[in-house]
Structures are given as C-alpha cells and as structure tokens.
Amino acid sequence: MANPPSRTPMAGGFLLAVSLLAGTIIGAGRGEASIGFVAGLGVGLVLLVAVWLIDRTRTR
C-alpha cells in the first residue's frame, strides 16, 4: 500500500508578528504607538484568517 503524501499546514503566525511590529514602528513614528499596535493587530488577524482559509481549502 502506498502511503499518502504528508502535508504540512501553512503557518500565518509570522504574518501576525510582522504586522504587529510594523504597526508599532509606524505608529511610534507618528507619535501613536498604541494605535499602530492595534492597527497592526487588525491587519495581522485578517492575514492570519486568510492564510487559514486558504490552507483549509487546499486540504479538501
């Protein structure tokens, strides 16, 4: 019997971490680090969910 090919899931945590850092740095440059952090969190979560949905559709 042939073994099915192993499939590793995609990870979106990197995108979340990068967007948090970028949002904080951009926000600090504008004098509003907290708002930049929250904006980065929002963008990161959207990207994270997008990666999760794409990965979920690939498995089917």
Rank of each mutant, 00 (worst) to 15 (best):
I26G: 00
T57M: 03
T57R: 10
A17I: 13
L53F: 09
D55V: 00
P9T: 09
T24W: 10
F37T: 13
G44D: 04
G13H: 09
L15M: 11
L20N: 01
G44L: 05
A22Y: 01
G44Y: 07
D55I: 00
T24Q: 02
S34L: 15
A39I: 15
L48S: 02
R58P: 00
A11Y: 10
A22R: 00
I35D: 11
V43C: 13
P9H: 10
I35G: 02
V49T: 13
S19T: 15
V43Y: 06
I54Q: 09
M10W: 05
L15R: 06
S19K: 02
M1T: 10
G13P: 00
G42F: 15
A33G: 08
L45R: 01
G40Q: 04
L53Y: 11
R7C: 04
A28V: 04
T24N: 01
L16W: 14
R7D: 07
L48G: 00
A22L: 14
P5G: 00
T59C: 01
R58H: 04
I35K: 12
P9I: 02
L47M: 14
L21E: 08
I54L: 14
L53H: 04
V43M: 13
F37I: 11
V43R: 05
R60H: 07
V18W: 05
A50Y: 09
M10N: 01
A22W: 02
